[in-house]
């Protein structure tokens, strides 16, 4: 069976819809992972011992195991405890939490790296420790980790392909479905790869824009 790319236009609408889902899932999971990362970082650094230590253990477990395995845990685990979410929501939660753990590691390092004088200056103005963290330390830490967090978000886009395995009709599963009808895996997986590549380029462009914008306020 040779290659025949002329079949592509006929199914382009399915693939484009898949692209839209991939972008939507990526953006939603990215937002979840960003704010989740900040919250996780604060817990890992400042929560009481009894919360902090088990939390760190779980974070460690999530960093040491494959995302795919975690997606199975979250998807089937939620069903197990009686929460029957649509697959795409489970996918967003799984991706979001996975990358929140990675973002949290970056943010923790950045929080600890913010100059001690910043906390002191905020405290001398009368801010409480929590206020100083919220207003002064964390915003700076987050600015410092924008480039590596951007890289994580681009990794997130590519890992979003994994949610096809739990039945989310994003780009990869859309391609699979078309292939199921046409028996043309090479053509449509190449097409899917090209779509991911273009979305990837778009994300890199946005990343550069954001980095340039914040460089002045660091």
């Amino acid at each position: 069976m040779g290659l025949d790319f002329s079949i592509i236009p006929k199914y382009m609408d399915v693939i484009l819809l898949g692209c839209a889902w991939t972008i939507g899932i990526t953006v939603a999971a990215a937002i979840l992972s960003f704010f989740g990362g900040i919250i996780f970082a604060v817990i890992a650094l400042y929560a009481p011992w009894i919360i902090r230590q088990p939390f760190r253990l779980i974070a460690w477990l999530f960093m040491g195991t494959p995302l795919l395995l975690q997606l199975f845990l979250i998807y089937f685990g939620l069903v197990q405890i009686g929460i029957d979410l649509p697959a795409f929501v489970a996918g967003i939660i799984g991706l979001g939490l996975h990358f929140a753990v990675y973002n949290s590691e970056l943010i923790q390092t950045a929080i600890l790296a913010v100059d001690k004088g910043q906390m002191e200056a905020a405290r001398t103005l009368g801010l409480s420790r929590g206020e100083a963290l919220r207003k002064v330390v964390i915003p700076q830490a987050v600015r410092d980790v924008v480039p590596p967090i951007g890289n994580n978000m681009i990794a997130l886009l590519k890992d979003s392909a994994l949610v096809s395995v739990i039945g989310v009709s994003e780009l990869t599963l859309s391609a699979q479905r078309v292939i199921g009808k046409t028996y043309r895996p090479f053509e449509f997986y190449i097409l899917a790869a090209a779509c991911y590549y273009v979305i990837n380029l778009g994300m890199e462009w946005v990343q550069r824009k954001i980095e340039r914008r914040i460089s002045i306020s660091r």
Partner: peptide, 14 residues
């Protein structure tokens, strides 16, 4: 009590 530091400690993100 206002305090002024040797290294300014201005908030760079503001």
């Amino acid at each position: 009590v206002g305090m002024v530091f040797q290294h300014f400690n201005l908030f760079p993100h503001m």
